[in-house]
């Protein structure tokens, strides 16, 4: 299957978008996760809330994902 230069660049762009979102989420979750575990050690009943806070930064990854999908749609990849 031949891939055009535009499609290849779009695929790389989509990859960068996802990578950036994933890295940002990882950095944010690292801080929240360590603080959250500290809280759970003191108050195990707070686990539900900690998990909720832990997933908040996943929005960044979702934005990366949306941008990647948009790039792939524009590039004719999907």
């Amino acid at each position: 299957m031949a891939i055009t230069m535009e499609a290849a660049i779009a695929a790389i762009g989509a990859g960068i978008a996802i990578t950036g979102g994933a890295m940002a989420t990882g950095i944010a979750q690292a801080s929240i996760g360590s603080a959250g575990l500290g809280l759970i050690a003191e108050k195990p009943e707070e686990m539900g809330r900690v998990i909720l806070f832990l997933v908040l930064p996943e929005t960044l990854l979702i934005f990366g994902f949306v941008v990647a999908i948009l790039i792939m749609l524009a590039g004719g990849l999907i």
Binding site: E58, T59, L61, I62, F63, F65, V66, I69
Partner: peptide, 12 residues
């Protein structure tokens, strides 16, 4: 606007 985009996580 960003909160609406947030719902795309369902698809993700």
């Amino acid at each position: 606007m960003s909160h609406i985009l947030s719902y795309t996580r369902i698809m993700g």
